[in-house]
Design a protein around this nucleic acid. Structure first.
Lengths: 205, 205
DNA sequence: CGCGAGAGTAGTCATTGACAACATTGTTGT
DNA sequence: ACAACAATGTTGTCAATGACTACTCTCGCG
């Protein structure tokens, strides 16, 4: 059935997904502050109260958005790392990871901001889990590096945290306009390189 | 004249400052989303339109808050660095800088979030300047380190950016609940140490 | 085949930011 | 002194919004 001129049936049938889509568009073009449930409903062509059937309140919609963001980010990170064929090439894999992150985070600036601010909200366990899954990948990378003696010993998560923090900070600065996007690649490069140098075991220095 | 039972004169005399004070309290306890101009006006006991004489709109109030935050942060950073008597002790100074930053940023979590999200708003030049002043200090530190040959050559600002980014990222993770505050000190410690190792000139490796 | 749950609608309310018109007070030039 | 006048507050109003309630439509299941 064509949906162009046809009257929409009483039941939309796909509202939840379409709400999320519209929400992400609005997020991208107008920012999170401007995102209004009634606006989305108007865009889609349903009544102002319809979204309530799918999201208890504005927060719930934003949380769902953040969760979906983390899932997609996780996937991007995974494929980026896996694309480095040489499984033992830690520098390359770390670099791929960092690059993929900053690309996603700068191409989806507003969404990333939302993701980073929602993941602490109590009750948003789904968001937290999605975030942990995305982040967990770097711990694995670090762990492998340690096993092969390329990185100093110590809590893999703690060490990974540093890398993650740096990348997070860089994108935050780009997204807030503090530094120009052109410098992104270079900064990520030096960040990863310096990290690898700084985290080498003592006997290799 | 006592101001306890006395009727407030028609002209408050200090509304702007008191608004900023109340705003910061509200920010701290309820977060930026809940901050409402009318609420502040009620708290202070003026009419709902009074704030408009001092801040064109909600954004302007938030920007002023962010600016004041950067000014205070800058001062904290400066004194922290200056408290290290040995002017040549780069590690100690860098550490003091990072420590002071994370302390401020975690003790003023919501304010920091606001600061980091406002500094890009076009037209908020005052905010941008305050931010640059606070951040510029680290460039100076790096430059000194380079002059004494303790750090590899290269754009001081670029190198400083990495440190700043890492510290920014760490606090962002703490403030969003991704990592526990107890780990803060340790993380900052390793971050600074690793940075210094990684940024040493080649011949010293 | 009817009926109940799921999904959408219309109506309402309190809150809010923004704005305009008006009131009060402090200041300044003469 | 004192009459403009600029600052600063006040009341009143409006449109938008999120949240809630009561009602309606449809479809699938027993």
């Amino acid at each position: 059935m064509s949906d162009t001129t046809e009257q929409r049936p009483y039941h939309h049938g796909n509202l939840r997904m379409e709400l999320l889509d519209a929400a992400e568009r609005s997020l991208r073009t107008h920012g999170v502050e401007q995102l209004s449930l009634r606006d989305l409903a108007r865009d889609i062509g349903v009544s102002h109260a319809a979204p309530r059937r799918h999201f208890a309140d504005r927060r719930a919609l934003l949380d769902a958005l953040a969760e979906s963001g983390f899932v997609r980010l996780g996937a991007k990170l995974r494929t980026a790392v896996d694309e480095i064929d040489d499984e033992d090439d830690l520098p390359a894999r770390l670099h791929a990871f960092a690059s993929a992150y900053v690309r996603f985070a700068t191409e989806n600036a507003a969404l990333t901001g939302l993701m980073n601010s929602s993941k602490h909200r109590p009750g948003a366990t789904a968001v937290a889990e999605a975030a942990a899954a995305a982040f967990g990948q770097i711990s694995d990378l670090i762990e492998e590096g340690q096993e092969r003696g390329e990185l100093e010993e110590g809590d893999p998560e703690g060490i990974g945290l540093i890398v993650y923090a740096t990348v997070l900070g860089i994108t935050s600065m780009v997204n807030s306009g503090m530094i120009e996007p052109e410098r992104l690649e270079g900064l990520v490069d030096t960040a990863v390189t310096q990290f690898l140098r700084g985290a080498r075991p003592a006997q290799q220095r």
